[in-house]
Design a protein around this nucleic acid. Structure first.
Lengths: 300, 300
DNA sequence: ACGACCCCAAAGCAATACTTATGGCATGGA
DNA sequence: TCCATGCCATAAGTATTGCTTTGGGGTCGT
């Protein structure tokens, strides 16, 4: 049952004649006539009776017409649904982002996106960069916000593309009672902290810390490790060590008992968006990328 | 939204890969690839993500798939419905027949048809031949049982075809008390009734009567006219006249007070089936024609 | 009786759809 | 590491399909 012919048949029924259908379709009369002939041959019976002023549907024709109408309705519905997705009246983006971004720039970007395209739905899933890329590879996420520390080669995965969207300065976090914590906000050289006990973050952040210390000429004495920046600050506030935290984490939360200081020469971590190579052919994803770009480009 | 491509897309989704869909369809891989490309171009966005082991549907692809499934289901339903009509598991025949046939051969034929094809539904409408042909021309009936009296040219209408299916002898009906009514069933010459009062049937039957009398050498004295054979016999039984009635009418009903006699040389009326020219391309009509033919060919 | 309007059939041409041929990319095993 | 395999895309060629052209028959109005 060729669906194209079915739609032609629908035009015949609507026009009441083959010639009328041809006019409606912008074709010649024999073109429509042939389609009808093929349909009738496949059906094994007459679908219309040829009368002087046009055609009249047989019972089979009436039956077929109902199905043709249903098909046509579905086709229109399909086109409308795609149109809604194309024009961002609908759509879903499954977004994976690391915690400190999920608490800061991502909500801001979601808000921006929601203002631009109210119909687009974002589903956020918190994931550290490696897991986030896993989600992309597995097809369980459409878009990921990731970071990589200075000197680290961000992992490239087949099929995924990465876009640098900004930097996130890494700052020194001291106990408020620390001798170097005054005056507030003064730059502190890393090498002056060679004797401190350190609290490292996640594996990738710990690697970033070690590399920075190595460049400063010492090996850090890492006593504790946690990828939770609230925990890190709690430890620091109690004087159990010092640490490095990116600004996004501190934007999300700064403990009362800690002091934050810039470290001259300490390179920021770089922020990335990642998604499957063809995902920028998905309007909702493209819009989400734009919203995240715009948010990250704007001054904090 | 080209429905053919939509079905190809459905195969892609089912197979999980373009190459798999091509195998399922018996095509080469680029053929399917091109269909998908066209769909995506018209949609304005990606419908699948190309991955090393196949493709993964995007949100738009999932949406489209649902519509494609609905379309495919409808197409199958349409094919099934036509198949049911083609194989006479379903179907309707709108039959028009004149009264005396409606009371005799038509019920018999309907019963025969019902035994052969229980799913086929016959809707009978009683109509004298001219009206029956009108119904055919107007598309309000599919098949008509008509008659024409000897010497009458049966009216041919454009677009309709006629088939002779038998004869119906015309018999003389006398009051039982009539002098010529004994012995029962003896042949009676028409000219011996020249002095009688006559009761005529419908217009066409009255014309048949006049013609028969003319051939017998007299003009009948027509006192009453009715196309109802029960009324006719009631009048005859009361001695208000004599008349001619076809055997089908008498098969349907014979009044107690009348006697029936053959008339030598009186030509029978001819029975016809009529239908639109292409209506024999309708299985249910064809089956009804066969049933009527078989019934009329069989001995009463 | 003619012209207008339906319809069908056959043959020609052009757009579409599929094939062939080739290359890129990712995965898995020798 | 490299080759083999399976996925995909692109480009060009071919063949079918689908539409047009042309010609002819029938019915209905003026």
């Amino acid at each position: 049952m060729d669906p194209h012919r079915l739609l032609v048949f629908r035009e015949i029924a609507r026009a009441g004649s083959i010639a009328g259908a041809a006019r409606a379709l912008g074709w010649t009369q024999p073109a429509v006539s042939q389609h009808l002939r093929h349909l009738e041959r496949r059906a094994g019976m007459a679908l219309v009776l040829r009368r002087p002023r046009g055609v009249q549907l047989t019972e089979a024709g009436e039956v077929l017409l109902r199905h043709a109408d249903a098909v046509a309705t579905r086709l229109h519905a399909a086109a409308d649904a795609l149109d809604a997705l194309a024009h961002l009246r609908e759509g879903t983006v499954r977004l994976a982002a690391f915690p400190s971004a999920s608490a800061t720039v991502v909500p801001a970007a979601m808000s921006l996106l929601g203002g631009r395209h109210p119909g687009v739905d974002v589903r956020l899933r918190e994931a550290e960069p490696p897991e986030a890329l896993d989600l992309l590879s597995a097809g369980e996420a459409d878009l990921a916000v990731t970071f990589s520390h200075a000197g680290q080669e961000p992992d490239d995965r087949p099929g995924l593309v990465r876009e640098a969207v900004g930097e996130d300065p890494v700052l020194l976090v001291l106990p408020r009672s620390h001798p170097q914590a005054v005056p507030a906000g003064r730059p502190v050289e890393l090498r002056s902290l060679a004797a401190e006990k350190w609290i490292a973050g996640c594996e990738r952040c710990a690697a970033g810390l070690r590399r920075a210390c190595e460049e400063a000429g010492f090996v850090p004495d890492v006593r504790h490790g946690t990828d939770d920046y609230v925990v890190t600050q709690a430890l620091i506030a109690r004087g159990l060590g010092v640490g490095l935290l990116p600004r996004l984490a501190l934007d999300a939360f700064t403990a009362p008992g800690v002091a934050v200081h810039p470290v001259p020469g300490l390179r920021p971590r770089r922020l990335h968006l990642a998604h499957p190579r063809e995902a920028d052919q998905i309007p909702a994803v493209r819009a989400a990328v734009r919203a995240l770009r715009d948010t990250l480009a704007a001054p904090a």
